[in-house]
Computed example of a mutant assay.
Amino acid sequence: MNIDTIQTFLGTTAIDLLMKIGAALIFWIVGRWLISKVVHLIQAGMNRNSIDPTLTKYLGSIITIALNITLVLGILGYFGIQTTSFAAMLAGAGVAIGAAWSGMLGNFAAGAFMLVLRPFKVGDFVSIGGVTGTVHELGLFGTTIITPDNVMTIVGNGKVFGDTVQNYSALPVRRVERTAQLAQGVDPLDAIARLKAAVAQIPNVAQSPAPEVSLLDFKLEGAVIAVRPYTHTDHYWQVYFDTNEAIARVGQEAGWPVPAAHHKVVQA
């Protein structure tokens, strides 16, 4: 190969290849921008028509992937790669690809089933796959959860669909579980009356069903009172902490002593 041949190659083939690569990059950037705009417009239209956010996000994911695949095939066609040959190559490697993607396809199928069965929707507070938090998005392959400590967590749809789902937002209210340990000598019936009055004053406590304040158990320290107000899941932690404060305040105002175990020693 002489200098003239090299110069001819650089002057024709290499420059043409660089131009095609540059054009492909421009197509990719512009195409991705157009895809984001199209998906945004579709989702905005669905939101204006009050379509469920879960369905909106799921369809948005499907449209995004479909348009990205179309964009990639278009760029390959620009380079002269026949899409039919490309598809034949993928079909020839179908066994290996199927083994590698079996889990992803299972997650996709589980997501489709959940979209139909609707065990939860975007915004619900749930416990799924060992993760508790608010549903942010039901994607093609995974469900995005925002945990109470503000951590984004993605759980595979297959794990969600095959595990127990607890939806704390499905019913109007949920119960807050607290207990009050009384000291020996404190009248439990009087304590129940005081705690009922205090819990009823807590903001966002549901009136129906009414708060449950009952004699739960007896211990060496004294009687144990179950304090169980009901509230919407959005106010759960506020009612939880306010109930603790109400128990402490009632005990302080009533002058209850600090609970302590009492043992009676019998001498032979």
Rank of each mutant, 00 (worst) to 15 (best):
N2F: 12
D4T: 11
Q7F: 15
G11Q: 10
T12S: 15
D16H: 12
L18Y: 13
G22H: 05
L25K: 08
I29T: 12
V30R: 07
G31H: 05
L34K: 09
S36T: 11
L41K: 12
A44L: 12
G45V: 07
N47C: 00
S50M: 07
D52T: 05
S61P: 00
I62M: 12
I65T: 11
V72G: 09
I75P: 03
G77P: 01
G77R: 09
Y78G: 09
Y78P: 03
G80E: 08
Q82N: 15
Q82F: 03
T84V: 09
M89V: 08
L90W: 07
A96D: 01
A100L: 12
G106F: 01
F108D: 00
A110S: 14
G111Y: 03
L115N: 04
L115R: 03
L115M: 14
V122I: 09
F125E: 02
V126E: 04
S127P: 00
T132R: 10
T134M: 08
T134R: 12
V135N: 01
V135K: 01
V135T: 02
L138S: 02
G139P: 08
T153Q: 13
I154D: 08
I154T: 15
V160Y: 05
V160L: 08
P172I: 06
R175T: 11
E177A: 06
A180N: 02
A180K: 00
A180W: 02
L182V: 06
D187M: 06
D190N: 10
A193R: 13
V199L: 06
V199M: 05
A200L: 13
P203N: 07
L215W: 13
L215K: 05
L216G: 03
L220C: 02
L220M: 13
V224N: 09
V227T: 04
Y230D: 06
Y230F: 15
H235M: 04
V239T: 04
Y240D: 12
F241R: 08
N244G: 13
E245D: 13
A246Q: 06
A248K: 11
A248P: 00
A248R: 10
R249D: 10
V250F: 03
V250T: 04
E253T: 05
A254R: 02
W256V: 00
W256T: 00
H262W: 04
